[in-house]
Nucleic acid binder design. Structure first.
Length: 501
DNA sequence: ATGTAC
């Protein structure tokens, strides 16, 4: 691996590396990794660790990005964001676009992720830091009490029947609006307006629907969280004003996705596509890159089930927004309306989308897989909300427990170099098992106290798994995106109170 | 990420 890296992986700018054809067999396009020298070192360490043979079937992210470049119908480059790390098939942080008018192009569930439409929603308030400090412990507790968290947590609210689930799968946020869980103005501030039209509940199994029924309006576990934050640095005052944010503004982020429902769809699709892979005649470098042609029955069915799961995730984040608004109302003895708890935005960072892009001077219809990557279209793109036309699409980037989060904004340059994409978070640096072995949960809890963060966590081993030391430095990631002009930073937030699985 | 395994 090391000699291959020396031969094929070259630095092309202070923020990018190219992975030349030949690094793995059958590459149709080169790979590109956005990384500064600090992040590059992490990637090379990961690659050399594999060479030492201690990690079983684990494939380092550089090789995963290259294997994706060998998939049929890929255009441009297989692109990795600065927070890239190894995932199932595709790396987490991989962006890959396939020409939808090329009959051999594929869609792969591993390019979307098991948590379909995992994403981040951000709300703001009219509260200031001094309002929240005296009550931050109560607020953390109220959030923890109102929003079901943890593995196997059950829904408090929402669907009662399979018919409800079908409507959620087909209508997304529009179901939540009709049922009174969302505010009308929330809709415009979600990517896709909170509802993907090409969704079909008929392509979602009863088993997946059953899992969704008991999990609607639940946060989940792992790196999912509901976090109260305070804006602590404004990089661009004009854009911040457009977003309704200023230094000291109290806001909150909800990071969650489609729960067991999306996971069930992904697992079933992987199994089905694996059994058909040979007869479909598609060669892949890694079993986990199992896929189907976009234009095949299997491809179309997966995309309509994936879109249905995306709609479930929009409804899920909407219900948790309802619950979080209630938690604030209780804490501050005011209505959510009094507190101006409006959406800033809602983004997806695990999805494949049909989009039009300019490629070599031609407009092309592409299926853009973004797995652990956020769409960040430049200013005046028609799919950006009216209010944000002048500033570009907001990309919401969550840090790790006790560290900063950011609102980034899409750029024209990112449209050209990354299909309008930027990073999604810090990106893991240590596996969960390594984190548990190396990091003491009590130590993490102590550090959170020192940082004046009130935390409520459903399971204690999560503290080690989700410790900042388990992740890359989000600052390096955001800085690299900025220097590479994939996005620019509008504001930074620090955490005040967090509820996690 | 995940009723963390068929």
């Amino acid at each position: 691996m090391e000699s291959l890296v020396n031969k094929y992986v070259k630095r092309t700018s202070p923020t990018s590396l190219v992975i030349g054809k030949g690094f793995v067999p059958n590459m149709n396009v080169p790979g590109k990794v956005f990384a500064n020298s600090t992040l590059e070192k992490l990637l090379l360490d990961e690659a050399s660790e594999i060479a030492s043979g201690s990690t079983g079937s684990f494939i380092p992210s550089l090789a995963q990005v290259a294997n994706v470049a060998a998939l049929p119908g890929i255009v441009g480059e297989s692109i990795a964001m600065p927070d890239v790390h190894s995932g199932y098939g595709f790396a987490i942080g991989n962006v890959a676009a396939f020409d939808m008018d090329n009959p051999s192009s594929i869609v792969s569930p591993g390019g979307v992720g098991f948590d379909i439409n995992c994403g981040v929603r951000m709300l703001r308030t009219n509260l200031k830091e001094e309002d929240v400090r005296p009550v931050q412990e109560q607020l953390a507790q109220n959030l923890f009490d109102h929003v079901p968290v943890g593995v196997g947590s059950k829904s408090l609210i929402g669907a009662r029947t399979y018919s409800d689930i079908d409507q959620i799968l087909n209508y997304g946020i529009d179901w939540a609006l009709r049922e009174g869980y969302a505010w009308p103005e929330d809709k415009e501030l979600c990517e896709e307006q909170g509802r993907i039209v090409k969704a079909d509940a008929n392509h979602v199994s009863q088993k997946a629907k059953g899992r969704g029924m008991s999990q609607l309006g639940t946060l989940g576990a792992g790196n999912h969280y509901a976090e109260v934050q305070v804006v602590d640095e404004v990089f661009d005052a004009t854009s911040a004003a457009v977003l309704g944010l200023e230094k000291g503004t109290v806001c909150m982020m909800i990071h969650s996705g489609s729960r067991g429902l999306g996971h069930q769809i992904a697992s079933e699709t992987v199994t089905k596509m694996e059994s058909l892979q040979e007869q479909m005649g598609i060669q892949v470098n890694d079993r986990q890159l199992v896929c189907a042609r976009i234009q095949s029955k299997e491809g179309e069915e997966y995309l309509s089930a994936m879109n249905a799961a995306a709609n479930f995730a929009y409804a899920n984040r909407s219900i948790m927004t309802f619950l979080a608004r209630q938690a604030f109302a209780k804490t501050f003895n005011a209505t959510p309306d009094d507190l101006d708890m409006n959406l800033v935005y809602d983004v997806s960072h695990n999805i494949a989308k049909e989009e039009m892009h300019l490629l070599n001077g031609e407009v092309r219809r592409l299926l853009v897989h973004r797995k652990g990557a956020t769409r960040a279209f430049g200013p005046f793109h028609p799919l950006i909300p009216t209010a944000y036309q002048t500033i570009g699409q907001p990309a919401l980037v969550g840090g790790t427990m006790g560290t900063a989060s950011y609102v980034l904004l899409g750029t024209d340059e990112g449209m050209k170099t990354a299909f309008g994409s930027t990073c999604h978070g810090a990106g893991r640096a240590l596996s969960r098992s390594k984190s548990r072995a190396m990091i003491d949960s009590m130590d993490v809890a102590e550090r959170l106290r020192e940082a004046n963060v009130s935390a409520r966590v459903a399971s204690s081993h999560l503290l080690a798994e989700e410790a900042p030391q388990s992740y890359k430095d989000v600052f390096e990631v955001v800085q690299t995106c900025e220097e590479a002009k994939l996005s620019r930073a509008a504001v930074r937030m620090k955490p005040v109170a967090v509820a996690k699985g």
